[in-house]
């Protein structure tokens, strides 16, 4: 073994590195929350498509989930970032590529669409655990399909799905690290950047690990509160 390595933990707070890590954390949180909002909206829509009685809609929902979850997020990001603008044709793609903060938009959309497929899948499992008679009970009171989903089935399924969604919410923050590969200055990117400038990547990444750990624990605490507020009384004992 060679212990000739000189540890320099000051790269975690020394100017400008401390600020870089904090900015990185801010970006990670921003990306995570923004992507989550898209993911929930799209995920609920896709998850609901998968249980409608229309075969075509169900197939669209299933195709969405299968495509997004069977391709690595990194490949999806590269596709959206490098190939995405090209899909709009040459003129438009040049304009898109000039956009300020393009990588950030792509990150949020890419991460959001990917996470949506996972939310849709959890929701489908939630829907599947609701009995057929429950649907019948709602309809027998005269409610329409739309009202049934809006007031009873979706809120119920979402509550059943809170535990897996909590895990998914944590995963979003971890997955934001992938967008460092398209140059977004989030937390992992910054710790890598510190290595490039100081050659003390070990300390920087160790520091970043503990920041992620703290972030994760904070999210768990927060989701605990959400769960307590929305849990179905007596159904999920804690």
């Amino acid at each position: 073994m060679n212990f000739a390595y000189d540890f320099d933990w000051s790269v975690l707070w020394r100017d400008p590195y401390g600020v870089m890590l904090i900015k990185g954390l801010g970006m990670t949180i921003f990306l995570g929350i923004s992507a989550w909002i898209i993911a929930m909206a799209v995920g609920i829509a896709v998850g609901t498509l998968r249980i409608t009685k229309y075969r075509l809609l169900r197939m669209i929902g299933t195709a969405y989930v299968e495509v997004f979850r069977n391709i690595p997020l990194l490949v999806q990001m590269f596709f959206w970032f490098y190939a995405g603008p090209m899909l709009f044709g040459e003129t438009l793609s040049r304009q898109i590529n000039r956009l300020d903060g393009l990588a950030i938009y792509v990150s949020i959309i890419g991460l959001g669409l990917y996470t949506a497929s996972r939310i849709a899948e959890h929701l489908r499992a939630g829907f599947a655990s609701i009995s057929k008679d429950q649907y019948h009970a709602v309809l027998s009171t005269g409610m329409t399909q739309v009202q049934m989903y809006r007031y009873v089935i979706i809120p119920y399924a979402l509550r059943l799905t809170i535990p897996p969604l909590t895990t998914e919410f944590l995963t979003v923050f971890k997955n934001t690290s992938i967008v460092m590969t398209i140059g977004v200055a989030e937390l992992t990117f910054q710790s890598y950047q510190i290595d490039a400038e100081t050659f003390h990547g070990l300390e920087a990444t160790t520091g970043a690990m503990f920041i992620y750990l703290l972030l994760g624990m904070t999210v768990v605490k927060f989701m605990d509160l959400v769960e307590r507020k929305y849990k179905i009384q007596g159904l999920m004992g804690r």
């Binding site: 997955n175 690290s177 992938i178 992992t188 710790s191 990547g201 990444t205 690990m209």
Partner: peptide, 9 residues
């Protein structure tokens, strides 16, 4: 609780 990319680094 840690992203895989960071673990790889």
């Amino acid at each position: 609780n840690i992203p895989l990319i960071l673990v790889i680094f």
